[in-house]
């Protein structure tokens, strides 16, 4: 008797998995975190934090400067910790720093920037986090170094520390 229940349970489980996967086949296949050394997907567009205008991420990348993308959120404590490094970077060096605000409340994120200073040249809002995942984010904060071919050449996962900071500076100075 007990075995019968297990049997029906397993069969229905397998059938359920089958249907989920069947539906999965029909989904659009944009679930592909971009790994390092791949070109940025040129279809990523997001709203700007203050104006609310839709902007393509690739349009913000500059040919003659080092491009950094920083994924952050006001609720994320490590982001606070790395914030001074970002401010320093943007004040002292020629660098194009683009912020992507990850799954955040707009008021909180604006307050975060007005309290701690805004190091970003542009801030884009990724309210559901999908575009960040497409970029390859695992969590916040993450910082990507991008070359002029729109390739991610280096990923800093987690908050930037002194070593990462010096590493970025060494790249800018050249």
């Amino acid at each position: 008797m007990k075995n019968n229940k297990i049997f029906y349970f397993i069969v229905s489980l397998i059938v359920a998995i089958f249907f989920v996967l069947l539906l999965g086949l029909k989904e659009e296949k944009n679930y592909s975190p971009q790994s390092e050394n791949k070109k940025l997907n040129n279809s990523i567009s997001l709203k700007e934090l203050y104006s609310g205008k839709n902007i393509f991420l690739n349009d913000l990348l500059l040919e003659n400067e080092l491009n950094l993308i920083n994924i952050w959120a006001s609720w994320c404590l490590p982001c606070k910790a790395e914030h001074p490094y970002l401010i320093n970077l943007n004040e002292r060096f020629d660098i194009n720093l683009i912020g992507i605000n990850y799954k955040d409340n707009l008021d909180n994120s604006k307050k975060f920037l007005s309290d701690l200073g805004n190091p970003y040249d542009e801030v884009l809002v990724d309210s559901d986090g999908i575009k960040s995942i497409e970029l390859g984010a695992i969590g916040v904060p993450e910082t990507y170094l991008i070359n002029n071919e729109y390739k991610i050449i280096k990923k800093f996962i987690g908050p930037l520390d002194q070593d990462d900071y010096e590493n970025i500076i060494s790249l800018i100075k050249k």
Binding site: G24, D128, I133, G139
Partner: peptide, 18 residues
């Protein structure tokens, strides 16, 4: 799980090395 979540809930998560 990421595949299932996407199908059922239309949400995306990324599961990485950590």
């Amino acid at each position: 799980y990421p595949i299932f979540l996407e199908v059922i809930n239309d949400a995306k998560i990324s599961v990485g090395p950590p």
